[in-house]
């Protein structure tokens, strides 16, 4: 009885996978960055409305997840909020064959957020580094109230985590007391409820909290994370958001990416709250 069931299952499996192969010709899978999942979904929705025959499936999980999926061959496009590491590129190319293509698709100004009740309006990157490595633990040391600082960070599979670690911490380690939350939204939510909290994340999410102006160093001018400052590079924490893929592997994916880079696709970027690429 069990044997026949297993056989049946296998038979079903075999037959359905044949269907799978044909049914998926016009489908694109996108996986990766949680920072970009909103953006990806909106792109997919808009594109599918115009091209109903194409199926686009967007899942999050973090940039690392997307890149791992590209390496393991389980996605057409990896969304990433950080550049792929050389080791990752090599391992993807050796596993899947072909060349990985890096495509910047949007700009994001990473913000450092505090609670709206916090009197602070600006912060320098060295100060932020000291706060996140645990060398500064009280707001009064950066010009705020005399209250301890609560650190909110991201889970280590996020590209935002890696970007912040590289560009703000200069590759130093986060203080262990930093709470790691699974999404930028959770960080925003936590900081909005915690008067002593500090967090970081994409600018698109900055609702109910106060993004600080950034000084590249202690003597530099404080710069707001606006479109112009991000595009000009004046803002210290702007970054590109990427698609990674193997071109010419999936026709539907190639067409989709071309549309994403077109003015139509870039319009979606502004709608979601990120900044379009400079052209």
């Amino acid at each position: 009885m069990k044997r026949s069931m297993v056989l049946n299952l296998l038979a079903i499996a075999a037959s359905t996978t044949l269907l799978t192969a044909s049914a998926r010709a016009d489908s694109v899978t996108i996986k990766g960055s949680d920072t970009m999942v909103l953006l990806g979904q909106k792109w997919a929705e808009t594109y599918m409305q115009k091209n109903p025959s194409v199926q686009i499936q967007v899942t999050g999980g973090g940039s690392g997840t997307g890149i791992a999926a590209l390496i393991n061959g389980t996605t057409d496009i990896a969304e990433s909020s950080r550049p792929m590491k050389p080791a990752e590129t090599t391992s993807a190319e050796s596993k899947q064959g072909g060349k990985v293509k890096e495509i910047p698709v949007a700009l994001d100004a990473l913000s450092i957020y505090v609670n709206t009740s916090n009197p602070l309006t600006e912060i320098s990157l060295p100060q932020a580094r000291k706060i996140y490595t645990g060398q500064i633990t009280n707001w009064k040391d950066v010009g705020g109230n005399d209250t301890p600082i609560t650190l909110y960070s991201r889970e280590n599979n996020s590209g935002t985590y890696v970007f912040f670690k590289e560009h703000v911490l200069q590759n130093d380690d986060y203080d262990p007391s930093a709470q790691t939350l699974p999404g930028t939204a959770s960080v925003v939510n936590a900081v909005s409820k915690d008067p002593n909290g500090i967090g970081y994340g994409g600018i698109a999410y900055a609702e109910g909290i106060k993004p600080l102006k950034i000084k590249k160093d202690d003597n530099a001018p404080a710069v707001e994370g606006t479109l112009e400052n991000a595009q000009s590079g004046k803002y210290g924490l702007s970054r590109e958001l990427y698609f990674y893929m193997f071109p010419n592997k999936n026709k539907a994916a190639d067409t989709f990416v071309a549309w994403v880079l077109s003015p139509d696709g870039q319009k979606v970027v502004s709608e979601v709250g990120y900044y379009p690429l400079k052209h």
Partner: peptide
């Protein structure tokens, strides 16, 4: 899966 626009119809779907 985190989010899928389609329902699973095959054994190897998410």
């Amino acid at each position: 899966a985190y989010f899928l626009p389609t329902l699973p119809t095959q054994l190897n779907d998410q």
